[in-house]
Computed example of a mutant assay.
Amino acid sequence: MKTCTTTKQLRCQLNREKLAGKRVAFVPTMGNLHEGHLQLVRKAKQVADVVVVSIFVNPLQFNVQEDLNKYPRTLAADKEKLFAEGAQYLFYPSVDEIYPEGMAQQTKVSVPELSETLCGANRPGHFTGVATVVAKLFNIVQPDTAIFGKKDYQQLSIIKKMVLDLCMPIEIIGIETARAEDGLALSSRNGHLKPEERHTAPLLHQTLQTCREAIACGYDSYLELEQHAIETLKNAGFQPDYFSIRDAYTLKEVTDDTELIVIAAAAQLGMPRLIDNVTLNLNPNQDWGMLATS
C-alpha cells in the first residue's frame, strides 16, 4: 500500500493505473477505522481494480473547535487495517494541502434543502463542509466509483445529489450499516460511551425498528410514533435531537406519493451524538420483509 500526502503524488500514481485501463474505487474517511469502514473497502475491491482510501479530518465540517480537537487520530492502526484489507493507496493530506488558501477563502459547495433538515437544522454549515471536501477529494482522485455507508443517510443523499447536479461521472454506492451484535451502529463515537451508556445505546436502533414495524402493520399516525419514540429515548437517558419519519428521496414529510420512507434519528448519549436510520418500502405490492432494511 502506497501512502500519498499530496495531490500531485496521488495523481501521478493513479494516472498510471488509469492508463493501464484499471477501474478506481474511492473510500473517503476521517480515520479511526472500524469494521464499518473496512466493509466499504471490501466492497470497493469487489467493484474496482484499484482501491484508494483517504484519511482526512475535515475542519470545515466541524462547528465546534473542541470536537475537532477531540476527534481520534489513529493513523498507525488505520494503516495496518487498510494494508490487511488490500487497499492499494492511502491518501493522507494535510489541512494546508486541502485548503492551501485557508478555509475562509475556499470555494464552497452547498446542496440546498437536503442540507438544511435533520442533522443540518442544528449544525449550520456542517453539510457544506462535507460536500465541499468530498467534491475536492473526488476531483483529486477522479474515481469511477465511490463507496459510502448508509448510517449517515442524509450525508449519502447529499453526496448523490451533488454528483447528479454537478454532472460528476462517478457511481455512488451505499453500503448497509455495519452493526455490533446488539444492533448498535458501528461508529468512531462509540468509543466515548461509558459502560452503562454502551448498554443503553442499542435502544436507539430498537426504537427505530419498533417504529418501522408499526408502520408496516398499518399505523400511519407518524407524529404520534415520533413523539412516542422521543419519549422512549428520553426516559432511557438519551437527549434526542430528532426522531423523524421522512420521504427517503426528498427527506421531506411523507406524502401520498411517497414510496420509500426513512426513519432517522440522532440523539446524545453522554458525550457522543449517535445517529441511525432504517428504511421501509410502502409499495403494497411488495413483500414488507424483503424490503425492510436495517
Results as ranks from 00 to 15, higher is better:
74 T>I: 05
74 T>E: 02
74 T>F: 11
74 T>N: 06
74 T>K: 04
75 L>I: 13
75 L>F: 14
75 L>D: 04
76 A>H: 10
76 A>F: 13
76 A>L: 13
77 A>E: 11
77 A>V: 13
78 D>G: 14
78 D>R: 12
79 K>F: 14
79 K>P: 10
79 K>S: 09
80 E>T: 15
80 E>K: 14
80 E>H: 14
81 K>I: 08
81 K>N: 04
81 K>E: 05
81 K>M: 13
82 L>Y: 01
82 L>P: 06
82 L>R: 03
82 L>M: 04
82 L>E: 01
83 F>K: 12
83 F>Q: 09
83 F>I: 12
83 F>N: 09
84 A>R: 04
85 E>I: 12
85 E>A: 15
85 E>R: 08
86 G>V: 09
86 G>L: 01
86 G>P: 03
86 G>M: 02
86 G>K: 03
87 A>T: 13
87 A>N: 05
87 A>P: 06
87 A>L: 08
88 Q>I: 12
88 Q>L: 09
88 Q>G: 14
89 Y>H: 10
89 Y>N: 06
91 F>Y: 11
91 F>E: 00
92 Y>W: 15
92 Y>P: 15
92 Y>F: 15
92 Y>C: 15
93 P>Y: 08
94 S>P: 13
94 S>M: 06
94 S>D: 13
94 S>T: 15
94 S>K: 06
94 S>N: 08
95 V>H: 06
95 V>Y: 05
95 V>L: 04
96 D>P: 11
96 D>A: 13
96 D>V: 13
97 E>I: 10
97 E>N: 10
98 I>C: 02
98 I>Y: 03
98 I>N: 03
98 I>Q: 00
99 Y>N: 02
99 Y>I: 04
100 P>H: 03
100 P>D: 02
100 P>K: 02
100 P>V: 11
100 P>S: 04
101 E>K: 08
101 E>F: 13
101 E>L: 09
102 G>D: 01
102 G>R: 01
103 M>Q: 14
103 M>C: 14
104 A>M: 05
106 Q>E: 10
106 Q>H: 08
107 T>P: 15
107 T>Q: 06
108 K>C: 07
109 V>N: 05
109 V>I: 14
109 V>G: 07
109 V>M: 08
111 V>A: 01
112 P>C: 06
113 E>G: 03
113 E>C: 08
113 E>H: 11
113 E>T: 12
113 E>V: 14
114 L>Q: 10
114 L>G: 10
114 L>A: 12
115 S>C: 05
115 S>E: 01
115 S>T: 08
116 E>G: 09
116 E>Y: 12
116 E>W: 09
116 E>Q: 11
116 E>I: 10
116 E>T: 14
117 T>Y: 07
117 T>V: 15
117 T>K: 12
117 T>S: 06
117 T>D: 02
117 T>W: 07
119 C>S: 12
119 C>W: 11
119 C>G: 07
120 G>A: 02
120 G>I: 05
121 A>F: 15
121 A>M: 13
121 A>T: 14
123 R>N: 04
123 R>S: 06
124 P>I: 05
124 P>D: 00
124 P>N: 00
125 G>T: 06
125 G>C: 07
125 G>E: 01
126 H>L: 09
127 F>L: 01
127 F>S: 03
127 F>E: 00
129 G>H: 01
129 G>S: 02
129 G>D: 00
130 V>F: 04
130 V>C: 09
131 A>E: 00
131 A>N: 00
132 T>P: 02
132 T>E: 00
132 T>Q: 00
133 V>M: 03
134 V>A: 04
